[in-house]
């Protein structure tokens, strides 16, 4: 993504509310990611300036938590649950199916920018395992076929 396009004014509200509240770094980063879809370098530098927290510390926090990203993600972020129940119910097959269908690995985005894949900690929908979340929607009791169908539908919906 062209870094010049990062509109830093979008951060005004968040920074006005939290920049001077101690202990708010994670909250600020969460809002920042909600705004941009990831944490742009420019935003981190601005947060550093407004909060007085060193960029090395912000990056330290940002890279510690799995929630944060430093690259833009695809239109659909697939979060595949790695919980125990999903494991026991063969989530490995689902992971393989997604990789095969989309040609991407964990942490990658398809070339058309449509899908990103991320293996995540337990989503807590264990009774429906194996489970994945795509953006806000949860899909449970997955089978390879069902997974393919979901991906196909999303791809068609995007076109």
């Amino acid at each position: 993504m062209d870094s010049k396009k990062v509109d830093l004014s979008l951060l005004d509200g968040v920074l006005n509310e939290y920049a001077q509240v101690k202990g708010s770094l994670i909250t600020i980063l969460q809002h920042t990611q909600d705004i941009y879809g990831y944490l742009p370098k420019e935003a981190i530098e601005l947060i550093s300036e407004k909060t007085g927290i060193a960029t090395s510390e912000i990056m330290g926090v940002g890279t510690f938590y799995t929630q944060f990203r430093f690259e833009p993600v695809g239109k659909y972020l697939i979060m595949l649950c790695q919980g125990t129940a999903c494991h026991v119910n063969s989530s490995e097959l689902i992971l393989q199916t997604i990789k095969d269908e989309l040609g991407i690995d964990d942490g990658q985005t398809t070339e058309d920018g449509l899908f990103s894949l991320k293996c995540v900690a337990c989503l807590g929908c264990c009774s429906l395992s194996p489970v994945m979340m795509i953006n806000e929607d949860t899909y449970g009791s997955l089978t390879p076929d069902k997974t393919k169908k979901i991906l196909k539908e999303l791809r068609e919906a995007a076109q």
Partner: peptide, 11 residues
């Protein structure tokens, strides 16, 4: 911060 994979009581 119910992080145990396989647990969702708190949620």
């Amino acid at each position: 911060d119910e992080g145990d994979p396989g647990a969702f009581m708190d949620r």
